[in-house]
Design a binder for these strands. Sequence first.
DNA 1: CATGTTAGCGATACCGGTATCGATAACATG
DNA 2: CATGTTATCGATACCGGTATCGCTAACATG
Lengths: 355, 355
Amino acid sequence: MTVLGASLNRHSIGKLLVRKSTLEEVAAAAGVSKMTASRALRGVADVSTETREKVLLAAERLSYIGNRLALSLSSQRTNLVAVVVPSMSNIVFPEVLAGISAELEGSGMQAVFGISDYDMAKEHTIIRDMLSWQPSAIVVTGLDQPQETVRMLRNAAIPVIQIMDLDGTPIDFNVGLSHGRAGEDMARALLTAGRRRFGYIGSALSRDLRARKRKAGFERVLSEHGLGFVEQQIDDAFSSIALGKHLTQHMLASTPDLDCIYYSNDDMATGGLFACMELGGSVLGDILIAGFNGLDLAVALPVRIATSRSPRRIIGETAGRLARQAVTAGQPSPQKVFSFVPEITGVSALHPSRL
Amino acid sequence: MTVLGASLNRHSIGKLLVRKSTLEEVAAAAGVSKMTASRALRGVADVSTETREKVLLAAERLSYIGNRLALSLSSQRTNLVAVVVPSMSNIVFPEVLAGISAELEGSGMQAVFGISDYDMAKEHTIIRDMLSWQPSAIVVTGLDQPQETVRMLRNAAIPVIQIMDLDGTPIDFNVGLSHGRAGEDMARALLTAGRRRFGYIGSALSRDLRARKRKAGFERVLSEHGLGFVEQQIDDAFSSIALGKHLTQHMLASTPDLDCIYYSNDDMATGGLFACMELGGSVLGDILIAGFNGLDLAVALPVRIATSRSPRRIIGETAGRLARQAVTAGQPSPQKVFSFVPEITGVSALHPSRL
DNA sequence: CATGTTAGCGATACCGGTATCGATAACATG
DNA sequence: CATGTTATCGATACCGGTATCGCTAACATG
């Protein structure tokens, strides 16, 4: 802890002025040159054991912490992984981030996150800001960035990892699942279970492209069977349990004779289930609630709902691993597309015994 | 997009070698000096309109994105806010992060996140790594960092914002709530509602200090009334709905005559509620489930549980605002401690009518 | 003893920006 | 016409590290 009076690089704590120490100061304290101190601290060759210990001691006494700005600028590598996700309002993207973060741990790499709020213009700005930090790789959500954003990403000259979605042309790496197909598969499973009168409840579809793709896939299969949604309730607010509950109450009031409601995701579906539970009566047995994500919540519910489990933790880990390999390993992964197929659970046959 | 063959600062995309353009190149393309280009791009004075437009055009054509490493190293300010949270496995900390992120938006500042997994040693390492990026402020969770970590934070010479907790001595700023008091308040509310036979179900108490403080507060009040937990189920795994459900099933099997179970948080409590719902019978009316956090989930449940709403979004926003003020505004906030008292909801009297 | 080899260390030039100060030209002023 | 003022721009020195190359001393070798 160096105490100075005249420096700019300071911050008042109590009445003291504290300044971070630099490599130069450590070197001076150890009686060697900057270069030797640098070598000693990094543990590279060409330093005698005696000198190394002097430097380490000096660094310890000065509480020296290296300046990664200088390191990165000098070495032309930041080992930063930029990650842009659309939302933090349900548990899905935090789990992706945790997966990336866990996979990067110990590799000397570090994730930096940004939230786009499902807003393409905001996403563009955020990506631009992130790129200015010269990340070694970038992870973005979805494959449907506007052309301008794609051009910027290509120009960044770093590995681009697009996650969550699969329906489109990747820039570089792609880790995700086909939401169109997830919708189709769920529709087929529900039809097989005998369901015929479908409602749809969704939110923020104007912004959430993947929810829209699931809905479109679902409708494709329905129409192949000469069917369609009997009723739809769509709100432009972001998804939440409360919103799902509210819209479901509306729908059940106007169209009570459905045998299945497909929701834009599990949060909405959970709200729907809660609405049904509060209504009581035969509703619970008659109407199957179907969502998407396979949240822990959805799986633990006292009454099962149908859902597709999105492999979000694995997607995060895979993205993290790709970034790590592309940066630290010599060669990036030869495999460019990592495709997952969500497992469907909880689809019960029509008119099951009451729970 | 500059195409070069010999540079190191490149990345192969297809068969092309792409390189990021620098201010020097923009300046050359515009026929001016680096310095003039810098001024033009930053919109500072001393540049003619004509020159400014030439530079902006050149920057546009070269897809120039400034290098913040260089900028920050040169200007000695990163405008980075480091944030260390213990977990991303429930929605609480993602909401804090979203609050910080939202408050920083448009200010030119950027949050960087790290996850400590409730591990003090890991937290120390993460904080060290973060500090090496020379953040302009740092947000850490809790007030109980080991002495070594506190020393490092003080030495960092930047504003330190400790969040979530309030029971302790802050380094600099403190935004949170007293978990000891939250536990006490909940116990008093439940006692007032006539509850007497309490169970406790918790998880990861060896690491989650704040859950431990709530439990301790709760027990203080119980013992003041000559009471204590009739039974406790504690598991060292991290909290989850599934774990809460599992432990509750255990507890109800061995001690069915409880009238209230206090859980370490709402995730665990929700699992507990689901366990009760599956058991059916009079359990739901007889046993009150009490948690902590006031998650949207808990509030929307078809059967209400008792909970204290932690103001996590506000805490995030306040932390973000403090960081912003300390860095961009001239003076940091004079108020150092921001204390919140969680609101308790869902405490129903003993033996309410069945739902 | 002359020469080669190696270990250990330092001087210097970057990395890509910005702050600072000085230079230049155009114009106004007495 | 000499001088002062202002607008516009560039040269230079940093910021705090690392890469590179060269230097020196100690030691081995013939």
